[in-house]
Amino acid sequence: MSVESVSTEALRLTSCRVHEAQGGGRRSFALLQAARHAGPLIWVLSAYAPHLPMLRGLPDGLGHRLHIVRAKTATDLLWAVEEALRSSPVGLVIAEPEKPLSLTAGRRLQLAAEAGKTTGLMLIREGQGSNAAETRWNCAPLASGKRDSTPHRWGLIKNKRGTLKTWTVHWNGATAAFNLVSETGE
């Protein structure tokens, strides 16, 4: 399998906007994005979420910047995300809503991201995207016999400012660096 290095611009989320990721690999995608953003990181989950990000499995230094917020209701979750997005020192806000966002809620989050100059990433279930999202990613882990990295297929399935594309990447989960697998190597 041929692997080529990728510029830091590949798979970068547009700043000051809210994006969405769906699929079984959405948390890995979120962790890569978290490693690529400087400053404090806010991860907002429902108080009843069955799984939390594993602090020991995070990329180096990420656990010290990560703040987890547990919201009791869907309204509290959206309020926490909006307030975090308005906070300019925050580098990235990740949230896992249980229900689809309305167009109004999605637009409010976009305005908050613009006001705070902060990037947001909503981890959604398939088919629960908001029309207000800047981009939507479909993220899936791929089976592999290697133990040093996990291959993923990350596809841009909605993009308000560009083309759609799918990448197969190898990411070891330890840093913000990753390798792109060339199309001929698949």
Rank of each mutant, 00 (worst) to 15 (best):
G127H: 07
I124Q: 11
R125A: 14
L101I: 02
W167Y: 14
R147L: 03
R153T: 00
L156Y: 05
Q110E: 11
A140W: 14
S182H: 12
T150K: 02
Q110Y: 01
A174C: 08
G106P: 08
W171Y: 07
A113C: 12
W137N: 05
T163F: 13
T150N: 00
L121I: 10
M122R: 02
V169T: 14
T104K: 11
L109Q: 08
E134R: 11
G106T: 02
T168Y: 06
A143K: 15
A115S: 10
L180G: 09
T163M: 13
S149L: 00
T104A: 14
W167T: 03
L123F: 05
L121T: 09
R108W: 05
T119F: 06
W171S: 08
L111A: 10
G173F: 09
M122G: 02
V169W: 10
S102G: 15
L103D: 12
N159E: 05
L164G: 02
K99H: 13
L111R: 13
K158G: 00
I157P: 04
V169Y: 08
T104H: 11
K146T: 04
Q110R: 06
A143H: 06
A115R: 14
K165D: 04
G155W: 00
T184M: 06
C139P: 06
W171Q: 12
C139Y: 03
W167D: 13
R107H: 14
K99S: 09
W154P: 01
T175L: 03
E126I: 13
P141H: 01
T168P: 09
P151L: 00
H152W: 04
A115F: 07
I157W: 06
A177F: 01
P141Y: 01
S102I: 04
R161V: 13
A112G: 03
L111F: 03
G145I: 07
G120P: 14
G145Q: 15
T104R: 15
M122P: 02
P100W: 05
G145R: 13
V181N: 10
I124H: 07
L103E: 15
A177R: 13
E114P: 08
